[in-house]
Simulated assay, not measured.
Amino acid sequence: MARIKRKTTTEMIWPYFLKLLQERPMYGYELRQETQKRFGWKPPTVTSYLVLYSLEKGGYVTVSWKEQRGKPARKYYKITKKGEDLLQEAIDYFKETYTKLAA
């Protein structure tokens, strides 16, 4: 059971990030914190940023820098239409899988 939990969380962060980004743009650290708060587990730091880079490169999220008073600018991620479509595909897949397993 530990393996399936790891596979559907730590090794598959992107659906969680896209789900959170549907609500509002967020920066990387904030996404990690919100994942822990909402889903009950905290993604590894390096993996999180690799996933965000991959989502950006694939066109699933866009990036914008926001200045802050007296602090370094933060990189905010925002889900795109392509990202919304990918998230819906993932949700449909998990619903279908659950239905088959629960039958």
Rank of each mutant, 00 (worst) to 15 (best):
Q22I: 03
G28T: 03
K81E: 04
K66M: 11
S64A: 15
T80W: 03
T97V: 13
A102M: 10
K57G: 07
A102V: 13
R3C: 09
P72K: 06
D85K: 15
Y76A: 03
G59L: 00
A90K: 09
D85L: 12
G58E: 13
Q36Y: 13
L50A: 14
K42F: 09
S64M: 08
P43E: 03
L20H: 06
Y77R: 03
I4G: 09
S54F: 09
Q36K: 12
D92S: 12
P25M: 00
T45C: 00
K100Q: 11
K7Q: 15
L52R: 04
K75C: 08
R3K: 14
Q88C: 00
T35D: 04
E89K: 11
Y49G: 08
P43D: 05
T45P: 12
L18H: 01
T35L: 06
K37Y: 10
W41Q: 07
Y77A: 03
I79P: 05
F17N: 05
E67N: 13
K71E: 08
K81N: 13
V51E: 06
L52H: 05
E96K: 12
K95R: 12
Q22N: 06
Y49D: 10
K81Y: 11
Y53S: 15
V51I: 08
P43K: 02
Y16R: 00
T9C: 03
Y27D: 02
W41C: 06
Q36I: 07
I4D: 12
L87W: 01
L55D: 04
K82L: 08
L52M: 05
Y93I: 11
R69H: 15
I13R: 04
W65E: 14
E89G: 14
T9F: 02
Y27L: 01
K5H: 15
R74Q: 09
T45V: 15
Q36L: 11
L86M: 12
G59D: 04
R38L: 09
L101G: 11
D92F: 05
T8F: 11
L21A: 01
L20A: 04
Y49K: 00
K75V: 07
I91P: 07
Y77G: 00
A103R: 13
R74L: 14
D92M: 08
L87C: 07
T80M: 06
L87E: 05
T47R: 06
Q22K: 12
R24S: 07
K81T: 14
G59E: 04
M1G: 15
A2F: 15
L101D: 10
